[in-house]
Amino acid sequence: MTKLTYNVLFICTGNSARSIMAEAILNQQGAGRFRAWSAGSHPAGAVNPYAIDLLERNRFKANDLRSKNWSEFATADAPHMDFVLTVCDKAAGEVCPVWPGQPMSAHWGVEDPAAVKGSDEVIHRAFNDCFMVLSRRIALLTVLPIEKLNKLALKQELAHIGQVKA
């Protein structure tokens, strides 16, 4: 039986940049096959303006994005997640909530562009680099033959995607 839409939750500590960008990218690139959300263990409360600017410049929808706590997705009435992907090392090391339905998880660590200090050019470059890595990984996810893989093979593929650079 083929599932029509796979739900994916991207996790990061602050949910202001990396996980937000991943949510926007997958919702656009995986439209119809994937539905993405993002959340953080300690959400910043606002989306980083560099992330919004980058998404809008690349014609991604950014108007509905918001920084959210991962507890929103650990309730019985939350969307059932098929995959939970951490995009920062801090979140990967934290004790995560028990996700309803026991989704498959993987770590896709990416350097935090929001932590970069320097000129606007340096910060923009960090956000662009992060965006490119996430875009490449998400492109690989969207073409993965999920229905044809057993759980172990799928887990290995997700882990492998997490190692891919731009």
Rank of each mutant, 00 (worst) to 15 (best):
G101A: 05
L134M: 11
A106K: 00
V133P: 00
G30P: 06
G45F: 05
L154D: 02
G101H: 00
S16G: 15
I52E: 11
N7I: 03
E121W: 08
H124K: 12
M21T: 04
A62K: 03
K3T: 06
L149P: 01
M1C: 03
S119W: 09
M104L: 15
Q156E: 13
Q28V: 08
T5F: 10
V122I: 14
N48V: 09
A31N: 14
M21P: 03
A36Q: 05
E94R: 13
A24T: 08
P43G: 15
R59D: 12
D89I: 05
F83G: 00
A46S: 13
S71H: 13
A76W: 00
G30W: 05
L141M: 15
P97N: 10
A62E: 12
E23T: 04
Q28G: 07
P103T: 01
L144C: 15
W37G: 04
L141P: 01
V133W: 11
L65I: 07
G14L: 13
L9A: 06
A159T: 07
C88G: 14
N63G: 08
T142Q: 11
D120K: 14
T13D: 04
V98C: 08
M21K: 04
S119Q: 06
E111M: 11
K3E: 05
K165P: 03
N58P: 02
R57F: 02
V98Q: 13
E121L: 12
A159C: 07
S71V: 07
Y50S: 13
D129S: 15
C96E: 13
I52W: 01
G45M: 10
T75N: 09
A114W: 00
L9N: 01
P113F: 09
V98R: 14
E111V: 05
N150Q: 11
L65D: 02
R136A: 15
V95Y: 13
K155T: 06
S67M: 04
G101L: 00
P103V: 01
A46T: 07
D120P: 03
L134A: 06
A46F: 12
M104T: 09
F73H: 04
H80V: 08
C96K: 15
M132D: 13
A106Q: 04
G30D: 08
V95C: 10
A92K: 13
W37L: 07
H42M: 07
D120C: 07
V143M: 15
P100H: 13
I146C: 01
A78C: 09
F34C: 04
G45L: 08
A24I: 06
A153E: 14
E56V: 11
M81S: 01
K68C: 05
I123P: 01
W108H: 01
F34D: 03
M104C: 09
D64I: 05
C12Q: 02
S135G: 10
V98N: 10
S105W: 01
L85Q: 00
T86V: 07
G32A: 09
V116Q: 12
A62N: 09
I20D: 02
S41F: 15
R125G: 06
F60L: 10
R136D: 10
I138D: 02
S135H: 15
Q28C: 08
R66H: 06
A36D: 04
A31D: 11
K151V: 07
A51P: 05
C12S: 15
N7P: 02
K117H: 11
F34T: 02
A159F: 10
